[in-house]
């Protein structure tokens, strides 16, 4: 499935609006924000249709999976938006991850747990917020985590930059930090970013990771940032390859339309995360060119001053 979807679910007392644009969205946040009510309305509508008194406006069918029937139903559901309520431990299973990986469905999972086997985006972790309350309550989804302001200033003003990546991405950020006399170390994978921060928590740290697949790691780091508000910061672009694509380094080959609305192009049945898509896209566009991209080792062309300047502009945007 591709595309961005606005879904409205309502009865005579409450109206939900959700914006979904990726294969996996997570809803979490405080108790009593409407999460279970949302699932209840969808379940009523699925069982009784319009005669439930619930209205669902969605271009794709909305389904609710439960613990009892998920294995049986999930194989049969296609091109739908599947909701899963809190308390369903199967969302942590490898089997569930396997099914989601090649699925034509989008998934909305209500949980506060970190689902490490699923590469979900930091931007698709949502909270529900009541936006208006008169005779009817209006509840809307918003991203839970704020974006980092002034990432360039954070890079140059840090004692230490930690990159999730240990290959091409690290090499480019190392070149940038060296010119500002800032130390830079690789974490060798997203699961090591937190421990690297802990090891250097007395320094002013900026950690850089691929936001498109960092969802399961972000909570503990944000919690730490709450404890060290001026010491630890996170910069989470979609991915390193997305920054290169966006930078204009590729000139006329820059995929402007794709970057403007990635969800229109990224098929959930082919790509588990946007991160993988942008890597494949960059490799494909630069093959047989001087800018040929290799994730394992950065092509030195990208380190030329003009290209580094463009890369920095992409970060600044």
């Amino acid at each position: 499935m591709t595309g961005k979807y606005e879904i409205k679910i309502s009865n005579n007392r409450v109206s939900f609006t959700l914006i979904l644009e990726r294969n996996i969205s997570i809803i979490r946040g405080d108790s009593a924000t409407g999460k279970t009510t949302l699932i209840g309305l969808l379940r009523d509508y699925e069982q009784h249709g319009k005669s439930s008194g619930v209205s669902v406006q969605s271009k794709k069918p909305c389904r609710v999976l439960t613990r009892d029937d998920w294995q049986e139903r999930i194989e049969r559901i296609r091109d739908s938006i599947i909701f899963i309520d809190e308390g369903n431990d199967f969302v942590k299973s490898e089997r569930f991850a396997e099914v989601v990986k090649n699925s034509s469905n989008y998934y909305v999972i209500i949980t506060r747990e970190n689902l490490y086997q699923l590469p979900y985006s930091v931007n698709s972790i949502l909270k529900l917020k009541t936006t208006n309350r008169r005779k009817k309550t209006y509840i809307r989804s918003y991203p839970l985590y704020d974006r980092l302001n002034n990432p360039i200033e954070q890079i140059t003003g840090s004692d230490l930059v930690i990159t999730e990546d240990s290959n091409a991405g690290y090499e480019l950020f190392l070149s940038i930090t060296q010119s500002h006399d800032v130390a830079c170390i690789p974490a060798n994978g997203k699961s090591n970013v937190f421990s690297q921060i802990i090891d250097h928590v007395d320094e002013k740290i900026l950690a850089i990771a691929d936001g498109a697949a960092f969802g399961a790691e972000v909570d503990k780091i944000y919690q730490l940032m709450e404890e060290h508000p001026n010491k630890v910061t996170l910069y989470l672009p979609e991915s390193f390859e997305w920054l290169i694509l966006k930078s204009g380094i590729l000139g006329a080959q820059t995929p402007v339309d794709i970057l403007a609305t990635p969800s229109t192009y990224i098929d959930s049945s082919l790509y588990f995360s946007w991160e993988q898509y942008f890597t494949d896209l960059l490799i494909q566009i630069t093959s047989n060119t001087i800018l040929r991209y290799n994730k394992r080792h950065l092509n030195p062309v990208y380190l030329q001053p003009a290209n580094v300047a463009k890369f920095l502009d992409a970060i600044r945007d």
Binding site: R13, S31, A32, T36, R133, T137
Partner: peptide, 16 residues
């Protein structure tokens, strides 16, 4: 409930 009207205990929030 200010949102749902009169509800039974089973419709309290998961946290409560």
């Amino acid at each position: 409930s200010p949102v749902l009207g009169m509800i039974p205990p089973t419709m309290l929030s998961g946290g409560v």
